[in-house]
């Protein structure tokens, strides 16, 4: 891994974490209970849309990263989302986070590491593809 590769993984992680925390904070601040009957009001609130735009940006940036790097390189970074979002939920949103939730995040991160180690997680790429994509 080189220094110039860091932005490719840092930006999608940043947008995911900020987006999810911002979206949850926005929904908490609405002042009414969110249900299927008022979902059209919820998704047209500017602050909700800002959170959604962050999440969409993160998704697009992940696609860019996935087109350049292998999943075995990206998934360990992706799995950091789980720890960061649980920490953020506790410290920023003030949710009651039980030790089980931290344990669960740890198990999910381990699971993602195993999936990324699968020999079948990658398409077979030619040497020419690799030289063009990296």
């Amino acid at each position: 891994m080189k220094i110039k590769h860091i932005p490719f993984v840092i930006f999608p992680i940043f947008f995911t974490i900020t987006g999810e925390l911002f979206l949850k904070a926005s929904i908490n601040s609405l002042g009414f209970h969110v249900a299927l009957s008022n979902i059209h009001v919820v998704v047209t609130q500017p602050r909700v849309l800002i959170g959604v735009c962050f999440i969409i940006t993160a998704g697009v940036l992940w696609l860019v990263a996935m087109s350049r790097f292998e999943l075995s390189f990206l998934y360990p970074f992706l799995s950091m989302d789980y720890l960061a979002i649980i920490l953020g939920s506790q410290l920023i949103l003030g949710e009651t986070v039980t030790p089980q939730r931290y344990m669960s995040a740890f198990l999910i991160m381990t699971g993602l590491l195993f999936i990324s180690r699968s020999r079948h997680s990658e398409n077979k790429k030619t040497d020419q593809d690799r030289s063009l994509s990296c």
Binding site: E20, L21, K24, D81, Y82, I85, I86, G88, S89, Q90, L93, E95, T96, V97, R101, S104, A105, I108
Partner: peptide, 8 residues
């Protein structure tokens, strides 16, 4: 749901 529940 809590974010710390729904996200994981």
């Amino acid at each position: 749901f809590d974010l710390s529940y729904a996200y994981p």
